[in-house]
Each structure stands twice: as C-alpha cells, then as structure tokens.
Amino acid sequence: MSAESITLEELDATERFLLAIADDEFVTGQRFAEWVTVGPTMEEDNVLSSLAQDEMGHARLWYELIDHGRDLDTVGYNRRPSERRNSILLETEHTDFGDTIVINFLYDTAETLVLEAVAETADDAVGSRATKVLEEERYHLEHATQWLERLVSTDEGRRRVTASFERLLPRSADLFAFDAAVGTAPSTAGILSRPTDELRAAWRETVEETISSLPLEVSADALEAAVSEPVTNGRAGEHTDALTALLDSIHAEGLPADHPASGYHA
C-alpha cells in the first residue's frame, strides 16, 4: 500500500464521477458526526451517529473502487479542498438541527436518484454497491421526511425550516453539476441510465412537491437557484471556506502525525 493519496490526474472520467459520490458521503458523514453528544435528544443523537456511520461506510465502498491501491484513510482524509469533488451543500456548516434535516432531505433525495440510475444500468462492482447503499438510503429519507413534517408543526419550526431551505437550496445547485467529462462519460459508459439533467429535473420535482406539501413559504428564487448554474461548483473543485475549516478541524486532532505521509499541511 502506498501512503500517497490519489490524484485527480490518475482517475478516468468514471472514477472521477465515483470520487464525487464518495466525497459527498465523506463530508456528510463528518457533518453528521458533529452532532455526537449534542443531538436534540438522546435517541436522535444515536440516530444521527448511526447515519454518520452509514455515510462513512458508503464513502468507503466508493473509495475502494478508485483507490488505486492506496490506504483508504489516506484517500479519505488527506486530500486538499481543491482535490475534492463533493457538493458545497454538504460542506456547509449546520447552524441548527433544521439545517441538518433539510440537508438530509435535499442530499438523500439527490443521491437516491443518482444511485437508482447507477443500479439500473451497471451490474458489476459499481451496480451492486449502488444497490447496497440504496437500501440504507430508504431509512435516511424516512428520517428526513418524518422530521420535516414534525419540525414545521410550530411557528418557530416553520420559520427556521424556511430559513434553512432559503439558505441551502442555492447551495444545492452543484448536486448534479458534474463537469462535462464526468457528467457525460458515465452515461456513455453505461453507468448512469439517465442523463444528469434529467436527474436534476426529477430532483426538482420531488423537492417542490415536498415543500408545497408542508406549511412553508419558500421563495421561488431559492428554488430556481437550486437548479441554476452553480456559483461555486464543488464538482469542479471549487469549495467554500467551510470545507477548509472542516478538514483543518479533522487534522487539528493530530491526523497528520498518524499519517505522516499526508503532507496535508505541507
């Protein structure tokens, strides 16, 4: 095993697509794990930890396919922000539990659509992993929708969940914004059964249906921003300061010492 991490140059278009999916899971797992010991209730704390573990497990499944023989911890932890391809939605700081639930809903809806398209088409290592991950995604979506319905049962809940959607919808614009080579290669290589713009349209439909079924008044601008050209595209390696801060906080725990070859701070 090499201690060096993977570089984008050595990945083909399909692998870069899988890297984006893996990085989504990795960053989501990290953000969910931040709730450990400070969840809204003991029981929900356990659930959020369980979801965080799911996401890290999913990240591992995808990294394993593209690690080129590298150590998985190194692949997951020791890549600079510019080398990462996760959506900026997922690196965003969670300012309250409502943010977590809205991200849970927006992301897991998108991920389910992408993985269904993968599972329908590829019946190899990629397809079987997609099928496995989808089984756990059903619970993730159940968790998101159950909480959304209950959080909006009070005035304060409606106000805060609306604010979360307003803040987070524009950051969802890169969920399907895989760059040209990555976006088209999987469908031509038979990994996605539907083109990404079709997936984005299906995502929009589900998101709009869910929001309109709840007593929320989310602006048309926010919904439009979610399906417009992203201002910052995580799929192209463009990230916000939130990702740098998140990675720095992980490495501040002494990870570079455990993985001396990381060179993350070099």
């Binding site: 659930v47 159940e142 968790h143 209950r150």
Partner: peptide, 13 residues
C-alpha cells in the same frame, strides 16, 4: 411526538 416518529427513532436505537 407520535408513534410513527417513535418507530423511526426506535429502528436506529
């Protein structure tokens, strides 16, 4: 708050 939510929480507890 209700039994559906209780089931959702129970599953992962």
């Amino acid at each position: 708050s209700d039994r559906e939510m209780a089931l959702t929480l129970a599953k992962r507890n």
